[in-house]
Design a binder for these strands. Structure first.
Lengths: 339, 339
DNA sequence: GTAGCTAATCGAAACGTTTCAAAACTGTCA
DNA sequence: TGACAGTTTTGAAACGTTTCGATTAGCTAC
């Protein structure tokens, strides 16, 4: 910019005024400055600008796994929303690792992002500390954090699973395997609660042996389904609490020579693009990904612009059970179930 | 930092020395500074640091669509590679829109990223200009650009499609529909060339009516397959040049009441996580996504660190045909094809 | 010819770091 | 005591912007 000023025979202040078209600059100087900019090949330095202005027009986004179709979509929506708003997005994937995420968030905060959207991978006190000492707004997506009252947009997970497992019980299933994610995450706790509520509503006793705890990954789903389906009294239906794990579960079912839905009905959380193309067409709980991303972006932008109310806002959206053909009515297998 | 210095009764220079542990600072001052940092709640300002140092430890990444499973994986690998190297990644999704991408790249350059990884959405002269005037290294992935000799990691698309379509001809297919992406992209040109080469190798005349030009999206694949499969002489096999379009194609096939592979064999470019779980299990060309991401990151890091040779490096990796069950031998439908 | 006004331009301080030559200590030895 | 050699610490100048009060130029009106 100094070069431009010299070249155009004006002060840097004038160049700055021209570039931000603030204040008046005469047609003659305008022309000289334009020429100088071309001659010098000037390119604005946004970091100097950010330093002076105190805002970077950048936000941070950290999610567990971008390859999980739910997060893929949410990240896609969020990046596009901020792109439209003139913000850049710094993305970190955490791989469900708590310390990683702490480090990443600190990095993001160091870099003076104007705000942060985080899908928290765990629920610990560290994060509370970080949030409290951060000078920028933070909004939570997908997962809430204990004792942390800040903007968030989440799903009514309990209701969603209640509906999905309720669908299975309505088909006559009474032994329903449940493949869970880690229990230290609000989302997973709520989903588990939905499962139990559905059982209760159908008068089915809760059997801990039918619950398998995975760690969100495909191989966890595989192992879980393997265990469930090789039990003496195997379940007639399986609900998977997330999408990568259902892939593993389906592979296990395939490898055991079983068929879905004939031998076992399957429902999973999170819809995916291929769900209605291939067989079996998976019955899923679809989250309103578009709305989640857009709302999260809107909440954060509101805070950044200071147009948000002081008190934290929690948006709870509803999931929708998309019924396809991965489930069928339970065969009555033994007298004990004829009710 | 000034606050810290005051609190600890030292100069900012000493605080800086402590923080970057450069130079000697005595145990006593160390302790005072540590206490002061806690007391003040100091948090380093990376933008001031970047301004002074001239490097941001941030790189820019722009891809067409993050929801395309190929890019999802590549983005995932790249973000993780740079995370390990201590870099943040700014991500932009272009939605295959050229002007968008130009703007985004300029934004990234303004922000003084230390380097750029670009999956270019088109092939125009604008980009050449941008690259030449950029003061930071840029590496291309997936797609080359005419007249632009810079680091790149791409696939041998021609060979990959040659193999895939060759597989179809070896099954006896002679009327093979081809769903193409836009022709202004190197990747798509090479894939089309592979298609023609495979036909030629099998002595099959090229029939332009069997080629449908889409714009990368699911609905394009749907429309293309609809047109192809409602022709009087419909193809016995379809090759889709990318993944989102094959989803559309499969939906069209389903909606027409046709079955895959019985009525039509299907192969597509780019593998996806569900490919071997559901029926039909799709035969695909799998790109070495892991290697692509890692190599691209390595190339860029080399350049950033100045450890790269002066001349541009082009890495061309090989795809692999993953044969599953979405294809079967062509039925001989009419004498003209009995060869 | 100058006071008064507006429009255009400018100078210099600030933003929060890093860096490096110089200054200030601390101790040792003559 | 003073010179010398280490070891710590410091002052001040950058980095490239923005901002704002001050200055200058160009008019009009008296």
């Amino acid at each position: 910019m100094l070069d431009v000023a010299r070249e155009a025979n004006v002060s840097v202040a004038t160049v700055s005024a021209f570039i931000n078209n603030a204040g008046k600059v005469s047609p003659a100087t305008t022309e000289r400055i334009e020429a100088a900019i071309r001659a010098v090949g000037y390119q604005r330095n946004a970091v100097a600008r950010s330093l002076k202005l105190g805002r970077t027009h950048t936000i941070g986004l950290t999610v567990p796994h971008i390859t999980n179709p739910f997060f893929t979509e949410v990240v896609s929506v969020i990046t596009q929303a901020f792109d439209r708003a003139g913000y850049a997005v710094m993305l970190f994937c955490t791989d469900e690792h708590l310390n990683n995420q702490d480090d990443q968030i600190r990095l993001l905060l160091d870099r003076m992002v104007d705000g942060l959207i985080v899908a928290r991978v765990g629920d610990d006190t560290n994060f509370g500390e970080i949030v409290r000492s951060a000078k920028v707004p933070i909004v939570l997506i997908d997962r809430l954090c204990r004792d942390l009252d800040i903007d968030a947009v989440v799903l009514d997970n309990r209701a969603a699973v209640l509906e999905a497992v309720g669908y299975l019980t309505s088909l006559g299933h009474r032994r329903i395997g449940y493949i869970a994610g880690g229990t230290n995450i609000s989302t997973m706790q709520e989903r588990a609660a939905g499962y139990r509520a559905a059982l209760e509503a159908a008068g089915i006793p809760f059997d801990p042996a039918l619950v398998r705890l995975g760690d969100f990954h495909e191989q966890d789903g595989y192992a879980a389904a393997m265990q469930l389906m090789t039990r003496p009294e195997r379940p007639s239906a399986i609900f998977s609490a997330n999408n990568p794990m259902v892939v593993g579960a389906m592979k296990a079912i395939r490898d055991l020579g079983l068929r879905c839905p004939e031998d076992v009905s399957v429902v999973c959380f999170d819809d995916f693009p291929f769900a209605d193309v291939f067989q079996p067409q998976m019955t899923t709980v679809r989250q309103p990904v578009e709305a989640i991303g857009e709302q999260a972006a809107a909440l954060l932008l509101d805070r950044i612009n200071g147009t948000a109310p002081a008190s934290p806002r929690h948006l709870t959206l509803r999931g929708r059970l998309v019924i396809r053909n991965s489930c069928m009515a339970a065969a009555v297998r033994s007298p004990e179930f004829s009710s």
